[in-house]
Amino acid sequence: MSSLFRKYAVSRDYPVLMLLLVVALGLIFLANDQTQNGPAQRVAVDLMGRLAVPLGTLVELRHLKSENEDLRLENARLRLEQLRLREAELENVRLRRLLHLDYLNRYDALPARVLGRNRIGIHTLVVSVGKSNGVVEHMPVISSDGLVGKILHAGESASTVHLLADRNFRVAARVRRSRAEGIFQWLEGDEGELAGVHHRADVAVGDTIVTSGMSSIFPKGLPVGIASRVEIGQSVLFQQIRVRPTVDFDRLEEVTILRSGWNTLADPFEFRPAGF
């Protein structure tokens, strides 16, 4: 035992080993509570960074090809996903506009799918609800953007809708801002006019035209269109007001029928579709 002790005692290795271990432990316990690196550490990190950059570039080059392929695949997948989400978003916006849940809850609204269109003669739509759903003639039909028309014929399970975009259609309307009243009727092309508005009435391009509630069919405040041209002649009594409809009749897919209570409302609503 004593010879063993002597052997190790005279060895230089053990004192040096102890010294180095103590230094290392000292560093662990004393040098690591500093919030900032010391200068030696900064130099080491800097040296390591400078020397490792070229080697790191080699690694990056190796991964570049596979990463590029992965990104291409990911890109293709995301494009498809984007298309799908865009479609869903459009559908969502359309349905939310259509529903207007708060509004519909008050007016017993009946959603319907557009089954067909007729652009020859009287412009009509065929919708997927009829008498079995409580639909009767003259009920107002709206979409998320405003007034669509009224029920022309009610079948058992389908109905035809007389469109606002028909020359035979009339509805009492007013300028939302100035409350000037007139009669809306469809003209040729894609516009209608607000007829019978006094030449002194305050009407400007961009004004929203809404139903006035004077009719026994349509509730007050349904958007009909936007004034697109206003002309005031010197010697005429009425203004010539062109109105572009708020509803795109060619792209209607769903409509809502105001089934009951719509013509006995004490406090008519102001129906504001998105964008108005």
Binding site: V23, A24, I28, A31, Q41, A44, V45
Partner: peptide, 10 residues
């Protein structure tokens, strides 16, 4: 330790 480890002395 100084360059990459983070715990000086470890």
């Amino acid at each position: 330790d100084a360059a990459v480890s983070g715990i000086l002395g470890l």
